[in-house]
Each structure stands twice: as structure tokens, then as C-alpha cells.
Amino acid sequence: MTPGHVPGVFNVIMDYPRMTMPPFWAPTASLARLRARARHLATIRCFFAERDVLEVETPVLGQGGSTDPYLASLSLEASTPEGRRQLWLQTSPEGHMKRLLAAGSGPIFQLARVFRDGETGRRHNIEFTMLEWYRPGMRFDALIDETCALISRVLGKPLAVTRLRYREVFKAHVGLDPLTASLDVLRLRTEEAAGVAAHDWSRDVCLDLLMSYQVEPALGRGCLSVVQDFPASQAALARCHRDDDGEEVASRFEVYHEGMELANGYDELTDAVQQRQRFDADAEARREAGLPRVAPDERLLLALQAGLPPSCGVAMGVDRLVMLAEQADTLSEIMAFDSHVC
């Protein structure tokens, strides 16, 4: 027996997901991988303890869900003191954590379980672990440095960091300016890139496809690539600012390693009125696309009205980080049970 093996089914699943399928009740990760995962989680907690960032736990269920038209929230009906209510499984712990910030928590982090309906694949699972942290008062640049330091620590090697602007990296890999190219040109390029009928696709959907197919796979090869200054239309919950060319861009960054998106950071929007407008715009987009209505997070809006300190925050896919650290090919290999066998 090799080290790390124990008698029993863990021996069988060492071969997963090769031809021999394990029994239906068996875990999808090997015991060695589960031990490695536990070590990486300990490293993350240690990293934040050293920096005096408080670990918090917030509810998985909330009275509001994510209104983002590109995220499918799951919900359930619960018996509460107020009677039967629809509650939403969180797609990220953002709302609750911002309410803690508004209450004066100071810097906080969480290893949260989050849920996104329909997302399954090699790099996706309906339920997954998200590391989210907030740094009130920290500069955006300092947060990028901190994010890269954490990734390097977990991966166990110092990685060079390359910082790129969305517009430049897009131009370099697609050969088009994402801010000024005409919609017709973008649609044509999308059709060429993906064998798809894109004649009625929106600008952002074309950009998303080209980014996913032609840019992301080239990023972070042997290093960490940080992409920043996203188009303002892709701001989500981030502030916007004018870039060096005078274009309005989102104060948002993404970190990639080995062609995979690992983390997404924002200079957080703290204006309740603007946040309300974005919720309303999401609701309208959902209605137009025939997507189900999701209750917006009214308590987050109240917290923003009460006052959220200027804060930067990051969300990081812990499972993907562990997958890279362990040189696994799929998330299943580092999750005790993936969505197929849960």
C-alpha cells in the first residue's frame, strides 16, 4: 500500500475518474487529496490570522438572492416565525458580509458554502467553497498584492504577477478593441471563434465569449495574470472610474493562473441609490430574458444607507485553488462528493 491509502473504498477511488467507476456511494476525492485540501484550508486561515482579519460565518440562507441575470439562485421554502417564507441559498456571502462591515466589523473573511444552479463541469459545481474577504480602507492595489500573496502561499511557490488592463489584453489576444469595435464585428468574430449563430447576441455576451475562448486560456501561464479595468457594463457590485484613456471602466480585477479564473475583486459600490438602480436593471434584464424573478437583498440596501465604509473585497474559488495546488484535472478530484454523487 502506498502512503496515504487506507483499506476500503478509498483504494478503489484512487483511479477515479478512469474507466473503473467507483460504487455510487463512494467519495469522488481520494483520502490523500482530502488531507491536502484540509492543509490548504489551514494555510488560508493562517494567512488571515497573521493579518488580523477576523473569520466570520454568515447564513447560507437569506431573504434576498442574487439578482445577477447570469447567476441562477436556488431557493427553498422555510417555516419561520413569520410563517412560510421563500429563502434564497446564497450565490456568495457578499450581502451578509457587507452588513457586518456596515456595522463596524473591520476586516473580515469567510470560507463560505455557496450555490449556483446549473453550473456543473470540470471547473464548476453547483455547491462550492468560496473564500471571500473585505478590507475596509485598503487601497485597491494593496488588495491585488494581498490576493496574489495568498495564492502564491497556497500554491507553495512565489509566482510572478503580471498586471493587464482588460482593453489591452483583449486587443492582444482577440485583435479587437473591446470598447470601440462595432457590434457587427464582435458578432462576426464570435461566430468564427465558436461556431455559433451570434447575430442577435448583445455586446457583453460577445465579449464574454471571446474572453472565455481566446483570452482566458492564455492567461497566468507560469505566473499570475491580474486583469483590471473591465468595461463599465460588467461592473456588477463594483464602483466605476475613468481610466487613463478617459473611458468609464469598472474598478474590478480578476486573477488567473494556468488559464483559470481564481479570484474576482471589487472596489465595492457603497452608494445605496446606485445599488438600487443596478438591482432594478437586473430585474428588468431578467424579465426580458424570461428568467425567474429573484427577491433583491433589501437588507443590503438598508445597510448601504446606514453607511458602508469604503471597502475592497475579493471572492476566490477555493476548490479551483486546491485543484491547481494538487495538479488535479477536475474539481471532483478535490471535493469529497461532487454534485453528481451528492
Binding site: 447570469y70 453550473e119 463541469g121 470540470r122 465558436a194 464574454d208 472565455s212 460588467q234
Partner: peptide, 15 residues
């Protein structure tokens, strides 16, 4: 083969 692809934020695709 069916690969789920999603940029950081935005539209998800199946390749």
C-alpha cells in the same frame, strides 16, 4: 463532450 464555460462574471456557455 460538453464543457461548461463561464467568464468571471457574465453569460455562461456550453462548448
Amino acid at each position: 463532450d460538453n464543457e461548461f464555460v463561464k467568464p468571471g462574471k457574465g453569460q455562461a456557455f456550453n462548448r
